[in-house]
Design a protein around this nucleic acid. Structure first.
Lengths: 204, 204
DNA sequence: CCCGAGCTATGACAGATGTCACTGTTTTTA
DNA sequence: TAAAAACAGTGACATCTGTCATAGCTCGGG
């Protein structure tokens, strides 16, 4: 019997999924959490064979939970179940040791087999998901430097160059250069697109 | 026994929800559809006491289904179940005769009682939802017009004015005016801030 | 020790953006 | 029907943005 922790914020989805999975004789949802903090508390108190993690949640999101688990040395296998095909979140999740990443539109049988595979020590990625990985592999040198990260953060708060310059104690020209660099790395044409990408891909 | 049609695109959510609802002795999910077109086909062939409609779907979304139902004179009561608190969609849905509008984070018991109320001929709106209605009533001048909505949507996709103008078949100057108006209504200083606000407040 | 990477800065430039004032047309509504 | 919105457009203007070339500084690794 596979002992599962199910973490998902929407009550209906969580209860429904728990019900469905419990129908499988090999799977038992032993605990449920509706946000990241609850999940961490449950992980600290009990041991599970696998944690099924939603990404987008209030309080502490899926990545946050993974991060904390790694900090605490928690080795519970994690299968990410999310609505969104997001390359960067995927990469971050895998780097934080997630063992699987599937989209919510998966078929029930596939999900069940994914759970069993992860528990068996395998890695599970949907093909839609591996495509992204490949794309990422092919174009590496796109990492933002610390300063660029900082500037991107400011952009994401809606600051114009002048304000960023004052805040970071730089000249406006310098900030313009950084912004220009960021746009090139993110492969977008203006700050608005950069912010959209940053928000969607959790770069901030 | 209440005969239900359940329309929801994500397999896991749909099956889970069907299972949960069927646990209630008064409710029976008689048919399921995974997009709007399937839903219409089922509605044409069978009769239901209530249709549970997701909003965001491929092929034909919830509003589209409602629209078609009204055109055909289909009086099946509709309860909208959606993830998003979206003022305009809510208003449109109600205008198209939806009898209830609840968010997916509703508790199971509440959902069940909402279904029973709708079947009994009542109207069901969550308080989170009526708040929006009130806000709309109280500050009409801050409401975006349809066109402004459209433009904001384009902004949120990162389009520059020139592209928006071409897409909407307007002059660039007109788009500039609309953008200017949007900025004023959202009380922000540039398009980037507008997009941030739109994303955060689910205005899109 | 030198090279490269990251950070800073400047100036010049083209284009994009946002504001304003003003003019119409159409549609809604009171 | 008359007033009020929404919609479309223009031209002028100031400012913001993004690009490019160039150059100096510092620091860590080979």
């Amino acid at each position: 019997m596979i002992k599962c922790l199910l973490v998902e914020d929407q009550t209906l989805v969580r209860l429904g999924l728990a019900n469905l999975l419990n129908l499988d004789s090999a799977i038992n949802i032993e605990a449920q959490a509706e946000d990241g903090l609850q999940a961490l508390a449950l992980l600290a108190e009990h041991s599970f064979d696998i944690a099924l993690l939603d990404m987008r949640m209030p309080n502490l999101d899926g990545l946050g939970v993974l991060q904390k688990m790694r900090e605490k040395g928690d080795k519970t296998p994690v299968l990410i179940i999310t609505t969104f095909e997001d390359c960067d979140v995927l990469v971050k999740a895998l780097n934080l040791g997630a063992r699987g990443y599937v989209l919510k539109n998966i078929e029930l049988e596939e999900l069940i087999s994914a759970i069993k595979q992860v528990v068996a020590g395998e890695r599970v990625l949907q093909s839609a998901v591996t495509d992204f990985l490949l794309k990422k592999q092919l174009s590496p040198q796109l990492c933002l430097t610390d300063k660029e990260q900082t500037v991107l953060q400011c952009l994401s708060l809606g600051m114009p160059n002048k304000v960023i310059a004052k805040k970071l104690d730089n000249s406006e020209g310098t900030i313009r250069n950084h912004v220009s660099q960021i746009l090139a790395k993110l492969d977008v044409k203006d700050r608005t697109q950069a912010v959209i990408k940053a928000i969607n891909q959790n770069l901030i």
